[in-house]
């Protein structure tokens, strides 16, 4: 992925699709490749599980975090920090932007879109989890993709297949929706950038996919080292 790496990577999608986990893991990957990187928590909708929950881990890894000063507090305020402007305008740092869920979350992105388009060095990933109730089919996912694009004022550039059932995910969970993924690709005209799954599932997933003929559907598998979020 690194060879074609754009400066700004945006992750958007239906809420609960796994954007936050992917954004954090993606930032870690860029950092591990020696790049200076900051991750921005742009979620002004969800007050609970957010990028900023991983504050300490990101700090240890040497990854910058830009998030609302109110994240994780009792202040329920749709505010974005001024540092976000730096991230968009100062072109010497790689930026990973965790966009809020659905079109409501993507609305907050609009303010930064003119600069992002002007620089023209970005990838905007539409993260899809077909096991979520309102994105069960390619049609439903496509509707949400278009709503997000309209709200944000910019187009997605690729799809990320992150279908999962949290801790009950198996390779089959992703493989089961291969037709839906194919349909979404055709409907949207967007390429599939990568599949993401918990890192322990990657070898079995690679084996299962080896026999598959349509290489364009899965040319990269991205391992996630999931953030623990809640006590079981």
């Amino acid at each position: 992925m690194i060879t074609t790496q754009k400066r700004i990577s945006l992750f958007c999608g239906h809420y609960g699709s796994g954007k936050t986990n992917i954004a954090i893991n993606y930032a870690c990957m860029l950092r591990a490749a020696g790049l200076a990187v900051s991750v921005a928590d742009m979620d002004i909708v969800n007050p609970y599980f957010r990028t900023s929950d991983s504050r300490e881990m990101l700090q240890r890894a040497g990854i910058g975090l830009v998030c609302s000063p109110y994240a994780g507090s009792n202040v329920d305020l749709a505010a974005l920090p001024k540092e976000l402007y730096d991230l968009v305008r100062c072109r010497d740092v790689y930026a990973v932007m965790d966009v809020g869920g659905d079109e409501r979350g993507a609305l907050a992105l609009g303010r930064y879109v003119p600069e992002i388009l002007e620089e023209d060095n970005y990838a905007m990933y539409f993260v899809v989890n077909f096991a979520r109730p309102l994105t069960r089919t390619a049609d439903q996912a496509f509707d949400i993709l278009r709503e997000i694009e309209q709200a944000a004022g910019m187009r997605c550039t690729a799809i990320v297949h992150n279908t999962n059932l949290a801790t009950q995910t198996t390779p089959q969970t992703l493989l089961h929706y291969i037709d839906a993924l194919q349909q979404l690709r055709q409907k949207s005209g967007l390429p599939v950038a990568f599949w993401s799954a918990e890192h322990t599932l990657i070898p079995a997933l690679a084996d299962a996919l080896a026999a598959h003929t349509d290489k364009a559907l899965y040319h990269e598998l991205f391992p996630l080292h999931l953030q623990a979020k809640i006590t079981d």
């Binding site: 609960g16 096991a131 979520r132 109730p133 059932l165 009950q168």
Partner: peptide, 12 residues
Amino acid sequence: MSEKVLMKGNEA
């Protein structure tokens, strides 16, 4: 919808 889906408690 007997197949498993991933849901928030509120959505469920």
